[in-house]
């Protein structure tokens, strides 16, 4: 037994990779569907959108790139599904250049499911430069900053955009973000400056930084990583890729806990042997 723990000290890292790969792949082939408990922050975002009057306009800021898709695209899809199921209207903006095609893919997928019409029920305004400056500019005029949409159509030709001037016309803001400019800047420049009710979905690696905003009430709801996306999918009763990925997520976490425990036992045994010698 002691020899086993000693050998663990010099195990090839590729063996660890192999175990991780097995733990990710097997749950997809043979799902065991562990329950997903819904947290308070996820429930907060759901309740806020659920409480909006029919026809309200939600702004979704999709500030992420393809590398954030596994965590953030399910959030975007789930928020669209929730909004469209409640007959809310959605306008999307992106301050990351890679964002508009990802948001548009989500738009098209969900709009087809709910029979929503572009320009009437939802609009993709595409990308604009400027980051925080652009956010502040939207407080003056959203059509001024986005004279054309993602398809280069003048926004005055879109019925939904005729109803929107600035943040005063936005009932709720959802920031789905993977970095800067992102949720932090939306809180600083828009929520605090224009008092827009706001929720967010962020990557897991950055989620701990945003819980203080949740506690202070600056964010009314927060989705943290794939787990947050899965919780939201459960709440809207439409499990998607995030919920399906949680089996693999849990399996890998258990594996890592096992490795941490084994590694520590191995380390302590080797230290004891050294002190005895």
């Amino acid at each position: 037994m002691i020899r086993f723990f000693e050998r663990l000290q010099s195990i090839d890292r590729r063996v660890v990779f192999l175990f991780v790969a097995i733990c990710v792949v097997l749950p997809f082939l043979f799902p065991f569907r562990l329950p997903v408990a819904v947290g308070r922050s996820t429930r907060g975002l759901f309740d806020e959108i659920e409480g909006l009057p029919e026809g309200s306009i939600v702004m979704l800021a999709g500030d992420y790139s393809p590398d954030g898709m596994p965590e953030l695209q399910p959030m975007t899809l789930a928020v669209y599904r929730h909004c469209f199921s409640r007959n809310l209207r959605v306008i999307s903006v992106c301050l990351w250049p890679e964002g508009p095609p990802l948001v548009e893919a989500a738009h098209q997928q969900v709009a087809a499911e709910y029979g929503k019409e572009y320009g009437v029920d939802y609009v993709n305004l595409g990308y604009t430069t400027g980051g925080p400056n652009a956010m502040v500019e939207m407080g003056t005029s959203i059509p001024g900053l986005f004279p054309r949409d993602f398809y280069l159509t003048p926004v005055e030709e879109l019925p939904l955009m005729r109803k929107i001037s600035n943040f005063a016309d936005i009932a709720f803001l959802v920031s789905i973000s993977a970095g800067t400019p992102g949720t932090r800047e939306w809180v600083q420049q828009v929520q605090s400056r224009f008092d827009v009710p706001m929720g967010a979905g962020v990557t897991a690696v950055s989620a701990p930084n945003f819980y203080p905003y949740m506690e202070s009430g600056q964010l009314l709801g927060l989705l943290g990583g794939m787990a947050g996306a899965a919780e939201y999918e459960i709440l809207i009763e439409q499990p998607g890729t995030a919920a399906r990925g949680m089996d693999a997520q849990s399996a890998v976490h258990l594996l890592i806990i096992l490795f941490v425990v084994l590694g520590n036992i191995s380390y302590l045994l080797s230290r004891r042997r050294e002190s005895e010698a």
Binding site: V24, F28, P70, A207, G245, A248, V252
Partner: peptide
């Protein structure tokens, strides 16, 4: 923070595996 970081990295792997499989 470490737990969330692990979750983020594993999520990327899960995304790629979903794509492949």
């Amino acid at each position: 923070s470490f737990g969330y970081t692990v979750m983020a990295r594993v999520s990327l792997l899960i995304g790629r595996m979903q794509f492949l499989f």
